[in-house]
Amino acid sequence: MAKKPAHRDLFPGALEVMILQSLRLRPMHGYALVKHIKQVSDDLLRVEEGSLYPALQRMLREGWLETESGISAKGRPTRIYRLTDTGIRHLEGEILSFEKMFTGFHRVLAAAKA
């Protein structure tokens, strides 16, 4: 599949942070997560299903998330992912380090323009 610029690969850790941040708003099931990220980013970012589910399992294993049985909007049984306290702490740490990275990134780009 040819890569469109809009759908380029995310850098490492980006997917996790987006999932954690989205789940911080409210607990969601998998499909809702995909749709949420797509909407919020105005279609600029798309989460591949192929990455989403393995990533969710990794985060469950790390203890950042937990699951509970729930009912989807259409009334079918599904699993709702919820952020844990460990998850919140990890998210905050990640956001800080991302912000630092972006600041640095911006400065380098700005310097190159000048």
């Binding site: 998998g30 995909v34 589910y53 399992q57 294993r61 259409k74 049984p77 699993r79």
Partner: peptide, 26 residues
């Protein structure tokens, strides 16, 4: 313990993916 109790996890994955597909089909 992860190995012992992972049956539930496997079920979770299947249910999630099933629902994902269903919702998209809808």
């Amino acid at each position: 313990f992860r190995v012992l109790f992972r049956k539930r996890r496997y079920d979770d994955i299947s249910v999630s993916i099933r629902e994902h597909l269903d919702e998209r089909i809808d």
